[in-house]
């Protein structure tokens, strides 16, 4: 715990501002916008012919798109889309993956072998490819995006949880619990999961960055949310057609996306360092 009391000046130094406070502010804003967007007086789908391709300026702060819709309002609506997708996908894939990985590693034997094979098969589909195929076949819509990304996402958590459990289950405290007659459920929930939390949280924090990019990627390909609903990915796709005359159509959602992804990655780095330090001290 003494790591937190290191020189106070460095906590608000340039490195801390860039690496911790700014990203934190971006993430909090992202979450706030996502949670409140439905109650704000926003009209992201409002078409205004007189505003078509309007550049950023006094009339509309961030300009308008090819249908005259306010880019600022659409970017806020896009924040909501990406946040909801990220939240659901992390929740579903982390819970499912951790459950599968933990029990597979703990029970061992034939079940474990089967789970390892299944994990290997899912890992054989590179990156977002399986999600692209799934989203393409299931059809557009936010639910299908969540399904497609969760089907791909659980594997990472399962692999991590399994590896951790394999190394943890021979620890003395687990052996002692078994000797005292604790059942597998009690051992998993009381003696294994609490120790698994730190690496899983780090994995989830980087996972969020991946999901935000993946959701925008699917929407960019036209496989994400249905128009006119806003997603940063579909906004970039629409903007790519008007690069010459209205580059702000790509840049506005692009900057929003990058800010969120960069912030999540920076905080993930911090979190990993912090949690590693604690592990080493144990």
């Amino acid at each position: 715990m003494d790591t937190t009391v290191t020189s106070k000046s460095s906590r608000f130094g340039l490195a801390s501002i860039l690496g911790l406070w700014l990203p934190l502010i971006v993430i909090v804003l992202w979450a706030l916008v996502a949670l409140t967007a439905s109650f704000l007086p926003l009209a992201p789908d409002q078409i205004a012919l007189e505003h078509i391709l309007l550049p950023p300026g006094s009339e509309l702060w961030l300009g308008a798109d090819d249908l005259g819709r306010s880019l600022a309002e659409r970017t806020l609506a896009g924040a909501q889309t990406s946040f909801i997708v990220a939240l659901w996908v992390v929740l579903v894939s982390a819970v499912a993956g951790t459950a599968i990985g933990t029990f597979s590693g703990y029970l061992g034997g034939r079940w474990d072998l089967l789970v390892v094979r299944i994990i290997d098969i899912f890992l054989a589909f590179p990156g977002i490819l399986l999600a692209i195929a799934l989203a393409g076949i299931l059809g557009p819509g936010i639910e299908n995006v969540v399904i497609a990304l969760s089907v791909v996402g659980w594997v990472g958590y399962a692999r991590l949880a399994r590896a951790q459990v394999l190394s943890l289950k021979h620890r003395e405290h687990v052996q002692a619990a078994i000797a005292l007659g604790a059942g597998p459920g009690r051992i998993v929930f009381r003696h294994l999961l609490p120790l698994l939390m730190a690496p899983l949280i780090v994995e989830a924090s980087f996972g969020i960055a991946g999901i935000v990019i993946a959701e925008a990627g699917l929407s960019f390909l036209g496989l994400g949310v249905q128009p006119p609903e806003a997603s940063w990915g579909s906004m970039i796709r629409d903007g790519a057609r008007y690069l010459l005359v209205a580059p702000h159509m790509v840049l506005v959602p692009g900057v929003a996306l990058m800010l969120v992804v960069l912030s999540v990655n920076l905080l993930g780095d911090r979190l990993r360092d912090k949690l590693d330090v604690r592990n080493r001290k144990r």
Binding site: G217, R237, L243, G254, L257, M258, L262
Partner: peptide, 22 residues
């Protein structure tokens, strides 16, 4: 390098097109 992993290729592509092609 952090910037590189954080910029998805569907954003990188249009920006490169804008600067170096357009």
């Amino acid at each position: 390098s952090l910037l590189g992993v954080s910029i998805p290729n569907f954003l990188m592509g249009p920006i490169l097109i804008l600067v170096f092609a357009v």
